[in-house]
C-alpha cells in the first residue's frame, strides 16, 4: 500500500536533525491533494462515513508518524464529527499514538506464552541496551520501544514487531542485535526473522503432511468414548469442582 514507505520518507527527512527536545513540528494540512482524494475514497467505501475514522487515522499516522492535534481536527472535519468524538474513539485503541515515536516502533510481546520464553527479560534487555524508557523516543529519534500484548505469534515465542512486522523465534539476548541491524540496514533488508514474512509454519516433515496429520494413537471418536468412560462426571455441562 506504500503507507509505510511514506512514513519512512517523512521521518527520514527529520531524523538526525531533530532532537527529542524540539520534537518534530506537526505538519500543516495533511489531507489535501492526493491524500484528500484517498481519504474521500476511503470514506466512500463505507455505508456511513464515521466508519472511516480508524482508516483515516492510520493514513494520517503513515504520513506524519503520530496523531497530532491538527490531525484529529482534520479527521473530525472530514467525517463531520467533533474533535472530542475523534479523540474519544481513537484513544480507545492501542495503535493510535498521540505522542511522537521513533522511526522504528518496537513492540515487544510479553504475553503469557512469550513470558514463558523470557519475554520480560528480552524487553528489559532491549530497554537497557538502547537506554530508553518504554514509549519514549531514543535521542536519535530512531526507536521507540513498547510493551505489547499477544501478537498472535505465540508459536514463535518470544516475538516482537517492528513497525508491525513480526520477528519470531527470538531470544532475550539476540533481540538487541536484530534491532541494531534494522536500524542500520532498514526494515526491508533484514531477513533473519523466521515467520516475519508470514505466520510460523512448524517444521512439519513431508511424511507428516503426506500422512495428512491423522491421529495415530486413537481415533477421535474412540478417544471421546474412552475419556467419557473414564470420567465420572456426566458429559453434560457442569463445573469441574
Amino acid at each position: 500500500m506504500g503507507e509505510m514507505g511514506q512514513s519512512e520518507q517523512v521521518n527520514e527527512e527529520k531524523s538526525g536533525t531533530v532532537k527529542q527536545a524540539d520534537a518534530p513540528k506537526p505538519p500543516g494540512l495533511v489531507f489535501q491533494g492526493k491524500m484528500l482524494e484517498r481519504a474521500k475514497a476511503k470514506i466512500a467505501e463505507y455505508p456511513q462515513s464515521r466508519s472511516a475514522v480508524m482508516p483515516l487515522a492510520h493514513m494520517y499516522m503513515a504520513a506524519v508518524g503520530h496523531l497530532t492535534d491538527t490531525g484529529m481536527r482534520e479527521i473530525a472535519r472530514l467525517l463531520r464529527l467533533t474533535p472530542a468524538e475523534v479523540l474519544g474513539t481513537l484513544s480507545f485503541y492501542e495503535m493510535f499514538k498521540m505522542a511522537p515515536k521513533g522511526r522504528y516502533l518496537v513492540s515487544v510481546c510479553t504475553g503469557m506464552p512469550c513470558q514463558l520464553y523470557g519475554a520480560r527479560q528480552l524487553l528489559d534487555n532491549l530497554l537497557e541496551h538502547f537506554n530508553v524508557a518504554p514509549h519514549e523516543v531514543t535521542g536519535d529519534n530512531m526507536l521507540s520501544i513498547e510493551e505489547a500484548e499477544c501478537q498472535a505469534a505465540c508459536g514463535g515465542a518470544p516475538c516482537l514487531e517492528v513497525n508491525y512486522r513480526h520477528f519470531e523465534y527470538l531470544a532475550p539476548d539476540t533481540a538487541a542485535q536484530l534491532i541494531e541491524d534494522i536500524k542500520e540496514r532498514g526494515l526491508d533488508t533484514v531477513l533473519y526473522r523466521r515467520g516475519a514474512e508470514s505466520a510460523p509454519l512448524p517444521p512439519i516433515s513431508a511424511e507428516e503432511i503426506a500422512e495428512g496429520m491423522q491421529p495415530k494413537l486413537l481415533s477421535p471418536k474412540e478417544a471421546v468414548a474412552r475419556a467419557k468412560a473414564a470420567s465420572a462426571v456426566p458429559a453434560s455441562g457442569g463445573g469441574a469442582k
Binding site: M72, P83, L87, G88, T89, S91, F92
Partner: peptide
C-alpha cells in the same frame, strides 16, 4: 467523551 479504555477510562473534552 470518554477517552481510553478499561481502568484508564475517563471523561475528556477536546
Amino acid at each position: 467523551e470518554f477517552s481510553h479504555r478499561g481502568n484508564d477510562l475517563h471523561i475528556v473534552t477536546y
